[in-house]
Design a protein around this nucleic acid. Sequence first.
RNA 1: GGCGGCGUAGCCAAGCGGCAAAGGCGAGGGACUGCAAAUCCCUUAUUCCCCGGUUCAAAUCCGGGCGCCGCCUCCA
Length: 469
Amino acid sequence: MRLYNTLTRKLEELAVHDNTVRMYVCGPTVYDLIHIGNARPMIVFDALRRYLESRGYTVIYVQNVTDIEDKIIRRAQEEGRTPAEVAAHYTEEYFRDLAALGVREPTHAPRATDYVPKMVTFIHSLVASGHAYVVDGDVYFSVRSFPGYGKLSGRVRDDQEAGARVEVDERKRDPLDFALWKKGKPGEPTWPSPWGEGRPGWHTECVVMSRDLLGETIDIHAGGSDLIFPHHENELAQAEAATGKEFVRIWLHNGLLTVRGERMGKSIGNFEYARDVVGRYGSEAVRYFYLSRDWRKPLDFSHESLAEAKRTVDRVYDFLWAAEALPDGGTPGPTAELDALTQRFHDALEEDFTTPAALAVLQEIVGLGHRRKQEGDVAGAKAAAAVVRELGASLGLFQAGRPATEGLAEDLIRLLIELRAELRTAKQFALADRVRDRLGELGIELRDGPQGTTWALRPSSDEEAGPEA
RNA sequence: GGCGGCGUAGCCAAGCGGCAAAGGCGAGGGACUGCAAAUCCCUUAUUCCCCGGUUCAAAUCCGGGCGCCGCCUCCA
């Protein structure tokens, strides 16, 4: 499979030697609920993970939880809680949201606070090797010490007008130097270190966790395109300065979610919480919505688009459930057409994981299935449904069974009672009686009274009498 | 200002040098239906933001415009 590597700006073969893909996807800072834009990398890279697994790879999928960071501290102060409480709360909510989105849990979900000692050791080694320096309890990475700095984001140091929008910290040797360790302020959570009490900077945790759980060189490191600079640039610099080895083989960056062309963001206020959107349209509609657009391109959010995605998903299920409910019939006909479509599906994904093209193929298979069903080719229709199930599974779609009808029964009974009342009004007693008799045969007794009709289950069947353990 | 991306039908969206341009939504016509819904069939871009160029051949490559967006500060 080939994927577009941000570092080289080219499509590159995902070369895996031991059949295991080691991938790391940047996770959330747990200071608030995630919004639907935050969910894009979770869904897209979950789909990639599933697809790789469907192709026979073993995937070790790591996603961190940043549970110590400025925003968490600020939030805690606002709410009068401890940062640890805030982080614990939103971590739990985060995993709740992931589950609601149909995203599988990562193989490992390390917390930054569990890695502080290892980060201290790592930073210490950078100081020892001259890649970092200590200033009054803070530790900075020296970008000048790493000649490759800027290679991921395509930035040359001299191009940068650092300080244009932020005041330059006079203590830094270079404006682009960034904090590896921050000296603790009163009231903030701190950990011990050789440079005094403090806490780690954001850019270090991913490097240390990634190395700890996946090794010095990993296959894929992924995240939103807004993380390319400075976050991933800084990670790369630290990791390669420390080991002298390639940190990441392929960097993947998804496009951002926009609203009327403008980036969805917490600070802009144009966001919707992921759980609200999932609650309204369902997780599969959200997934279909995301996969219907190339993962690298920006995608515009609108309720119309989500509604359309939901309709599309519903119609695929209409076909699946109808085809699967057909009685088994006949021998399956020639599979050439289905085979060709299946091939096209894989071709689309093997070339930069082009999910929109793959979904288009899925639509063609559904159309083919409908046609076969209409022609009376039951086996052909079922074969098409089976392929949709199989290919859908490789992206995390179309695995639901027919919804249970519990709760529907009562509504249907009320509906029949209503219709029967109208029949009685119209003096269509024969039909009205038939409704009552047929319901009676089903164990539902109608009782006409002055206040209208009520009903009761007649405990006649033994399913009700069966002793429950 | 620097770096990167995008511009394909009414809308969404593949295609990235060679079948008069996938797929979905919407719209129109037909089949089916008591009427619908669903489904099926047909139609809906001779053309890919504009202008040049390369080529036997360009939506696809090159140059120049125009428009939109992201990053350069925490951000998926």
